[in-house]
C-alpha cells in the first residue's frame, strides 16, 4: 500500500468537524427542505402530500406581509453590517498597529468583554437604555431638552443599535487578524513615494484588507439576518423579520412546512447576496472570488 492511498492525518482531524457539519446542518437542512414541499408531516400524517403551495404562498403574498418581512430582514442585515464595518474597521486598524502589548491586550479585552454576556441580557440592557422611560429619554426629559420621549426603541433604529453592539466584536476580531498581517512597510513605501496618509491607506492598506472586510461582513450579515431575540424585543410593532415569522409559524401557528419554506427562501436569497458581494469585492481587489 502506498502513502498516497492513505488519508492524510489532517483528513482525520477534519473528520469530526465534517461529521458535525453533515449531522447538524446538511441533514437537518435536507429534512427542512423536504418538509417544505409537503402539506403536513409525512412521518406522522399518512395523508400528507407533495405540494409547492408554501412557496406559492410566499411568492404571491396575498397576505401582504411576507415580501416586506424579507426586505426588512435584508435591510436590517445590510445596515447592521455597514455600521459594524464603519465602527469596527478603525478600531481593528488601531489594534493591529498598536505597539504596546499591554494596550493591545486591554483593548482586546474591551472588545471581547460584551461577548461574555448573553444576547438576551445585552438586549434587555439596551431596552433599559432606549425605551421611553429609559436612561436616555428620562435624562433628556429631566434636563428639559425634550418634552416627549424620542423614538429610540420599538423600531428599526433600536433594533440596529442593539445588533451592531452585539456583532461589532465579530467584525473587529476578524479584521484585526487580517490587518495585522499586512506589512506596514508597504504603507511606508507608498508614503515615501509621495502618497499622503489617506492615499496610502486607500490604495495600499484598504485593498490588502479586503479579505478581512469580506469575512467580517459575511459573518455579521449572516448573524444579523438570522437574529430573532433582538428584533423581537427591540422592534415592537415596526419590525417583522423572516426569523420572527419562522418562529411564529413553528411556535404558534404550528405550520412547520411553511416555516421550512421560509427558511429555504431566506437561505437562497442570502446566498445570492453573498455571491454578488464576493464578486464585487473581488473585482475591486482585481482578483478572483475571495470566499
Amino acid at each position: 500500500m502506498t502513502n498516497a492511498a492513505r488519508p492524510s492525518p489532517i483528513a482525520w482531524l477534519i473528520a469530526p468537524a465534517g461529521l458535525l457539519f453533515v449531522l447538524f446542518f446538511v441533514l437537518p437542512f435536507a429534512v427542512m427542505t423536504a418538509m417544505s414541499f409537503y402539506s403536513g408531516n409525512p412521518v406522522t400524517n399518512p395523508n400528507a402530500f407533495l405540494t409547492t403551495r408554501h412557496y406559492e404562498r410566499f411568492l404571491f403574498d396575498t397576505a401582504g406581509i411576507f415580501h416586506e418581512a424579507l426586505w426588512s430582514t435584508l435591510r436590517i442585515g445590510l445596515v447592521t453590517t455597514i455600521v459594524s464595518l464603519l465602527i469596527g474597521y478603525p478600531l481593528a486598524h488601531w489594534m493591529a498597529r498598536m505597539q504596546s502589548r499591554l494596550g493591545h491586550a486591554l483593548v482586546l479585552m474591551a472588545v471581547i468583554a460584551p461577548m461574555l454576556t448573553g444576547i438576551v441580557v445585552r438586549t434587555f440592557a439596551w431596552m433599559t437604555i432606549l425605551q421611553d422611560k429609559g436612561v436616555i429619554n428620562t435624562t433628556l426629559m429631566q434636563w428639559g431638552l425634550i418634552e416627549k420621549p424620542l423614538p429610540l426603541m420599538y423600531n428599526e433604529f433600536g433594533t440596529i443599535v442593539a445588533l451592531v453592539h452585539i456583532y461589532v466584536p465579530f467584525m473587529v476580531l476578524t479584521l484585526t487578524g487580517v490587518i495585522g498581517r499586512i506589512d506596514e512597510r508597504l504603507e511606508q513605501a507608498a508614503r515615501s513615494l509621495g502618497a499622503g496618509r489617506l492615499r496610502a491607506f486607500v490604495e495600499v492598506t484598504l485593498p490588502l484588507s479586503l479579505p478581512g472586510i469580506l469575512a467580517g461582513s459575511l459573518l455579521v450579515f449572516a448573524l444579523s439576518i438570522s437574529a430573532y431575540v433582538t428584533p423581537s424585543l427591540m422592534g415592537g410593532t415596526d419590525v417583522l423579520t423572516l426569523p420572527m415569522l419562522i418562529a411564529q409559524q413553528v411556535g404558534t401557528s404550528f405550520n412547520p412546512n411553511f416555516a421550512g419554506a421560509l427558511g429555504v427562501i431566506l437561505l437562497l436569497v442570502s446566498l445570492a447576496i453573498v455571491v454578488a458581494y464576493n464578486r464585487i469585492l473581488a473585482r475591486l481587489a482585481g482578483g478572483q472570488g475571495m470566499a
Partner: peptide, 15 residues
C-alpha cells in the same frame, strides 16, 4: 381564521 387575522393585524399595527 388565524392566518387571515394574523396578516390583517400585522398590517394594521405596523408603522
Amino acid at each position: 381564521r388565524r392566518e387571515d387575522i394574523d396578516a390583517r393585524v400585522t398590517k394594521i399595527l405596523k408603522g
